[in-house]
Computed example of a mutant assay.
Amino acid sequence: MEPYWVRIAKQRMRDLGVTQSDLLDVFNVTTRGAVGHYFSGRSAIDVDQLEALSKKLGVRIDYYESSDNRLALDDVERMLDSWLLKFAQADLVEYKTDITTLKKLMLSSLSD
């Protein structure tokens, strides 16, 4: 089974039309084959390379899948209920619409 970071990177590469040859600078190598060694596990990716790969592909790529860092929409909704009201009560923001409408808009953008 391929590492999590490889699955995410390959999918993003397909989406963007990026090839392993386009990643020579990320891994500081001179051949596509050398890049392939990272994707096959023959060479170990380091933190700097993973960060450079994330930047190159325009998406955060973690080494491991970490479901505990991801929130369900229900969790986000509860946080928004609390935060939006607290921001308004503290006079940190002034909403031009009601909080419920704002929350629905924010949640819909996350589920797209």
Rank of each mutant, 00 (worst) to 15 (best):
V29C: 00
G41R: 01
S111G: 04
R42E: 14
M1T: 07
L107P: 00
V47G: 00
Q89H: 12
V35M: 06
V93L: 10
M1D: 08
K103T: 10
R42F: 06
F27V: 05
G41H: 00
D46W: 01
P3R: 11
Y4M: 02
K10R: 15
M106A: 15
L85N: 11
S66C: 10
S43W: 01
L16Y: 08
S66D: 12
S21W: 10
K104T: 13
A52H: 10
D25Y: 05
D98E: 07
V35Y: 04
D48K: 15
G36E: 05
L71Q: 09
L53M: 04
K10W: 06
Q11R: 13
A72Y: 03
T31S: 14
G36K: 05
S40F: 00
L105Q: 14
D81W: 14
D81N: 13
W5E: 01
R70Q: 12
G17W: 09
V93Q: 09
R60K: 15
S108P: 04
R70C: 06
S82D: 11
I99E: 09
K86E: 14
L92T: 07
L71N: 01
L92C: 10
T19Y: 08
S82E: 13
E77M: 05
D46Y: 10
L16I: 07
T101L: 11
L110Q: 09
H37Y: 10
E51Q: 11
S67P: 04
V26C: 06
D62T: 09
V6F: 03
K86A: 14
D68I: 10
G17C: 09
G17F: 12
S108C: 02
Y95K: 01
I61R: 08
E94N: 13
T19C: 08
L50T: 08
I61A: 05
F27A: 04
T101D: 11
F87N: 01
L73F: 08
L80P: 06
Y95F: 15
L110D: 06
E77C: 04
L84Q: 05
Y38T: 02
D75E: 15
I8G: 03
Y95I: 06
Q20F: 01
K56Y: 02
L57C: 08
L23A: 05
D112W: 07
I61W: 08
A34C: 00
T97R: 12
W83S: 12
L84G: 05
D74G: 02
M79G: 03
R32A: 07
D25K: 14
D62P: 03
D62Q: 00
R12V: 01
D98N: 15
S82T: 11
R60Q: 12
R60P: 11
D22W: 02
A88K: 15
Y63H: 08
L80E: 00
G33N: 14
V35Q: 00
A52S: 14
R14Q: 15
M79K: 10
P3E: 15
P3W: 00
Y63V: 03
R78V: 10
L53H: 03
Y64L: 10
E51T: 09
M79D: 07
R70N: 09
D98L: 05
L23D: 00
L110G: 01
S67W: 02
K104R: 15
S109A: 14
K86M: 11
